[in-house]
Design a protein around this nucleic acid. Structure first.
Lengths: 190, 190
DNA sequence: TCAAACGGAATGAATATTCATTCCGGGAGA
DNA sequence: TCTCCCGGAATGAATATTCATTCCGTTTGA
């Protein structure tokens, strides 16, 4: 049996994700991260040079996993409208099933801790989605605006919808979740 | 002549806002807040029992100012569509002129530090906006969805638009700012 | 047997909070 | 009018705590 040498690395990342999502950056000291991961504090420093680096790696790691999962079924050949529908749905379901990742990502993206380079790296991961926008331009399906604007307002709206759902403030059923996503489509469709 | 007793309180709040928006909660120790406010560290504790309380007060204070300013010209008598247009525009311009407040509010709202009570207090301030939604329901102007959902996705989209603008990643002119807001209206209009 | 991985106590810097002291303005008394 | 108190506001050095990081002895596994 090959003992995964990165076992502890992954455990540290997982523990950091949980603690930060639950208690914020404040409430996630290295000592607690180590404790929750069942490893020694020193071990974390075998894999990350600093806490800052750990958090940054956690962000890249999280974003990578999310985009891979979301684009799992994506194909450049499917009809554009159908691709959008699927994309929306995947995002919603991913975050509903992984609320800690949403919480962490939102905290980090909104904090001044994130560097321009990391932000760029994050949007590079979303490149396939940019291709989807490209595919939509020819048949004139979308409003005549820069992709960045369309992308930003869509993503903002979807995330807001998910946060509302997760907050439990409103009772959701399949219907009004679907209705919400349709409304968001109306925002960008020509 | 009443000597402003709250001079220093306001100075502390202002300094905290600036530091947090620039460097995050981490990068805003009480010592620096005091220094930037040109007051003693101990003085802050005359007005707030703890840093946590200071930050909470800053949030309420900020949100109050924002909503008051945004609703400045609002009237229940104006046509609904016009009220929405104005509301959108006011929000956009307020935050563009006060980016530090946006940065702080987004950091705090996305962090687990915020309490349920504070969140509630924040949405209580937005009550007049709920009235606007109420006014829109009778003439069937909006999609048939719970207000909370409509409100959330609109606000999410607007904030995303503003953040994009402030990031400088996309060149904005009056046209595509206006186009963005129209797109957001399409999201909720029936 | 040895090198790499690990653990967690030790370290020192940073931080929030406290508190003894200073400062200041506005009466009281002469 | 001038001097002397007085109370509360303000201060920032001192304190106690927390935290990231380091160090070194132990364990692991090849």
């Amino acid at each position: 049996m090959t003992p995964k040498l990165t076992d502890k690395k992954a455990a540290a990342l997982k523990a950091a994700l949980e603690l930060i999502s639950e208690h914020g950056f404040h409430g996630a000291p290295m000592s607690q991260i180590a404790q929750r991961a069942n490893i020694g504090v020193g071990t974390i420093y075998r894999y990350f040079n600093s806490k800052e680096e750990l958090i940054n790696a956690l962000y890249i790691d999280t974003k990578t996993r999310i985009t891979q999962c979301i684009l799992r079924k994506y194909s450049d050949n499917a009809p554009v409208r159908e691709s959008f529908r699927q994309l929306f749905s995947e995002i919603v379901h991913y975050y509903i099933e992984h609320p800690a990742e949403l919480s962490f990502a939102e905290q980090y993206e909104n904090s001044p801790l994130i560097t321009a380079a990391t932000r760029k790296e994050g949007s590079r991961l979303a490149e396939p989605i940019m291709r989807l926008f490209q595919r939509a331009i020819a048949p004139n399906l979308l409003k005549d605006m820069p992709f960045e604007i369309l992308g930003a307002i869509i993503y903002g709206a979807i995330i807001a919808l998910i946060k509302l759902y997760l907050s439990g403030a409103v009772k959701f059923n399949e219907e009004n979740l679907e209705a919400g996503l349709n409304a968001i489509w109306d925002m960008i469709k020509r």
